[in-house]
């Protein structure tokens, strides 16, 4: 099997240029590539377009890259919980494209699956429909939406093997599998990297064909946004 292991996050992101289009997995702060975000911060690459469901919080996740003004444009479905984001948006420093969450997921899936466009009912009759083709199928209206692809997709998995097969855990899966398939280069950081052959093929979520670089991340904080408990 092909060995895709790189030494760590710095090696994984070393050729990401300024103005690259990135996809970053995660929902809220769950399943985000913490190590690669730190490496991008350290590398100082700028003018990035980030496709990610959310934009992190002020001092964690993509919020860190916003603070250092490394992001030119965010493509997301929900960007609350981030005051610096709000400030940059209102001052015009940051471009934002808001997309319904299911449309975002499907556009990314389509990008990885070679489907250039599809029709969805989400957003018909709303400002999301502006400039888009609307077509009727069986008496209901649908919007045409285009695929999304990235120069680099950065995903986070629970376990991975040296050939790039990935397994996610809990709701940290979210956008990671589709993004893994939609990047020209896909970087996977995993909590546990194991030798090829040690994962049960029945349990693989992302087949290694989509992954180009993999490493075992360190010091995962896995910050919780809304710690909610019962007695």
């Amino acid at each position: 099997m092909i060995n895709k292991v790189v030494s760590g996050p710095d090696a994984a992101v070393q050729d990401i240029p300024n103005h690259a289009v990135l996809m970053l997995g995660g929902f809220g702060l769950s399943g985000i590539p913490e190590n690669c975000i730190q490496a991008l911060l350290k590398k100082g690459v700028s003018g990035l377009t980030c496709i990610s469901n959310n934009a992190g919080v002020d001092d964690f996740g993509i919020g860190l890259l916003l603070k250092t003004r490394q992001v030119k444009k965010m493509i997301s479905s929900y960007v609350g919980e981030n005051a610096e984001f709000e400030r940059q948006l209102l001052s015009g420093e940051l471009e934002v494209e808001l997309i319904p969450q299911g449309t975002l997921a499907e556009r990314v899936r389509a990008g990885g699956a070679g489907i250039p466009a599809f029709f969805t009912p989400a957003g018909v009759g709303t400002e999301v429909a502006q400039g888009k083709e609307v077509r009727e199928f069986d008496g209901k209206l649908y919007l045409m939406e285009r695929w999304l692809k990235a120069d680099f997709s950065i995903v986070k998995a629970w376990k991975g093997d040296t050939s790039g097969n990935l397994i996610y855990r809990g709701t940290a899966r979210n956008f990671n599998p589709m993004m893994a398939a939609a990047g020209k280069i896909t970087i996977a950081e995993v909590e546990e990297l194991v030798p090829v052959g040690s994962l049960d093929p029945n349990t693989i979520h992302t087949p290694g064909i989509y992954v180009h670089r993999i490493f075992q991340g360190k010091n995962y904080e896995k910050r919780i946004e809304q710690r909610t408990t019962s007695i």
């Binding site: 929900y78 609350g80 319904p100 449309t103 999301v128």
Partner: peptide, 8 residues
């Protein structure tokens, strides 16, 4: 803040 999944 964005529509999240509400439109879908």
């Amino acid at each position: 803040k964005g529509m999240g999944g509400a439109m879908d």
